[in-house]
Amino acid sequence: MTWSAETLARAHDIIARYPQRRSAVMPLLYIAMREDGRLTDDGMRQVAELTGLTPAQVQSVASFYVMYKTEAQGKYLVSVCSSISCFLLGADDVLHAVEQAAGVPAGEADEEIGVEHAECIGACGGAPACLVNFELVEGLTPEKAKEMIEWLRNAKPDVINADELQTLFGGRRSFDWAIKEENGAIGPYPAFPPFGTAAHNTQPLEPGRRPMSNSQPAPLEGGTS
């Protein structure tokens, strides 16, 4: 199986940005994840061919970084931060709530939802925090985390938009996000243009697909806006 002409063209554009094509391994691995939903042997072979490496060399790179997933992660990968600042404010309870609501233990996934603990995600001022397909939600509680999982199961959004998640389930933020974003993630890999983002459907969700409580985000207290 090989990539489409369009995907290959995109890959070649990325390779052209670097003085040596080997440097394109990391962005191309994300493209491989987008193509197959996870990192497959075929995907790694394709990356090897494009970058002039052996498949073993590509695999050695891929296996070093936690965001390259060779196992299926479902449609939504929920990464709950468990490092010190989040831990001090109850991250373990949030992780357990996510595991229970999803019925998936950390490190595993079903067809829809993957759960994992993450090391510091840089949201310490809005602890405890998590990522859904690497889009940030800050100021979580175990209750809100549970609602979020139920919402993912019921509403099945095609695009994960951080502003939407933060409004529905988040609380205190590290700083004022200030700017609304249209784009979001379309799979369990970072939403960055070369590997695909999608505009968020701004149509309101149908009634009944709303979360149980629909509160506003808590006012921002600390930090510079």
Binding site: A127, R172, E221, G223, T224
Partner: peptide, 14 residues
Amino acid sequence: FSISGHVKKPGNYE
């Protein structure tokens, strides 16, 4: 400064 943990007003301060 990035201040976090058990303070009333965590955040980034210049």
